[in-house]
C-alpha cells in the first residue's frame, strides 16, 4: 500500500469512525477488521485507545499476570529486588480503618496526559497514537526523570547489562522501561500476555480492549458498570481502569 493510499484510508476511517460499525472503506476492507488487527504497514491510529479494565473483586492471590508478563517480555531479574525491573507487580491493600484486604496488579496506567512524557528531555518517553505509552530506547539517555515523575512507580531503570532478550522486546542497560501493553502482541491483534494469562486461569479479572469503541466489550462495561482511575485527583485520564476498588 502506498503512503498516499494509506493516508487516504486513514482519513476515510476517521470520517467513518462515528458511523456504523461495519463500514466498507474499500473493497474487502471494513472498519471492523481495521479495529481488530492492523496490517503490518499500517500505522497505529488515534481511532483506537487501548486500555485495561481490572476487576479487583475477581483478583486473587495468584501472580499469573506477573509471570506471564515476565515470560512474554523477558525481564528476568538477578534476584536483586531493589534494582531488578518490574513491569507489573501485585500490590496488596488493606484499608486502614476497616481492615478490608484486596490485591491487584499494578503497571503503567497508559495515561492520556502522562507525566513521564511531559518531563522527558529528549522525547524518548512518548505516547503512541493509540494511547500506548512507550520509551524509545534509541533516544533515552537514562536520566530517570520519568521515574521521578510517574505517580504509580510503574517504571524501572535497567541497572545491569542484559542478555537473552526476546526478539520483539529489546531492553538494555542504562535505559528506562515499563509495561508496553504488550505492544508487539497488540500490533498482531492479540491481547496483552497478562490479560491472556488471567483469563486462561479462569480468574477473568483483567480485560483488554479499545476504550474508544463504545460497542466493544470494554466500552460497554465501562458504560454500564462502576469503575475508577488511580490517582484520579491528578486528572491524567489513565487507560487502565479498576473496579471494586
Amino acid at each position: 500500500m502506498t503512503p498516499e493510499r494509506r493516508r487516504f484510508l486513514g482519513w476515510g476511517a476517521a470520517a467513518a469512525a462515528g458511523a456504523a460499525a461495519v463500514t466498507t472503506l474499500a473493497p474487502g476492507l471494513r472498519l471492523v477488521e481495521l479495529a481488530r488487527a492492523r496490517s503490518p504497514d499500517e500505522a497505529a491510529s488515534a481511532l483506537q485507545r487501548w486500555g485495561l479494565l481490572i476487576d479487583t473483586a475477581k483478583c486473587s492471590d495468584c501472580d499469573a499476570c506477573v509471570s506471564a508478563c515476565r515470560e512474554e517480555n523477558g525481564w528476568t531479574g538477578h534476584d536483586r529486588p531493589a534494582t531488578d525491573a518490574q513491569w507489573i507487580r501485585k500490590v496488596s491493600l488493606r484499608d486502614r480503618r476497616s481492615g478490608f484486604a484486596q490485591t491487584l496488579p499494578l503497571m503503567c496506567q497508559h495515561c492520556e496526559h502522562p507525566p513521564c512524557v511531559d518531563v522527558c528531555p529528549t522525547g524518548a518517553s512518548f505516547r503512541r497514537a493509540d494511547g500506548i505509552v512507550l520509551v524509545d530506547k534509541h533516544i533515552c539517555i537514562g536520566c530517570r526523570y520519568c521515574v521521578m515523575a510517574c505517580p504509580f512507580g510503574a517504571r524501572s531503570f535497567v541497572h545491569e547489562p542484559t542478555t537473552g532478550q526476546k526478539p520483539d522486546v529489546p531492553r538494555g542497560k542504562g535505559t528506562v522501561e515499563s509495561c508496553t501493553l504488550c505492544v508487539q502482541r497488540v500490533d498482531r491483534g492479540e491481547r496483552p500476555a497478562c490479560v491472556e494469562a488471567c483469563n486462561r486461569d479462569g480468574h477473568g479479572a483483567m480485560a483488554f480492549g479499545d476504550l474508544n469503541n463504545a460497542a466493544g466489550d470494554l466500552g460497554r462495561r465501562l458504560r454500564s458498570e462502576p469503575s475508577s482511575a488511580l490517582r484520579a485527583d491528578l486528572k491524567l485520564n489513565p487507560g487502565v481502569r479498576y473496579q471494586s476498588l
Binding site: C120, P121, T122, A124, I139, I141, C143, V158
Partner: peptide, 25 residues
C-alpha cells in the same frame, strides 16, 4: 551519571520543550 552518557549528543538534538529538564539544558 546518565544511564547512557555517550548519548549526550541526543540531548542536544532531540528536544521535548514541555520538559523543564530540556529547558535547563
Amino acid at each position: 551519571d546518565l544511564g547512557r552518557p555517550e548519548r549526550l549528543i541526543v540531548a542536544m538534538t532531540h528536544y521535548n520543550f514541555k520538559s523543564i529538564f530540556a529547558w535547563n539544558i
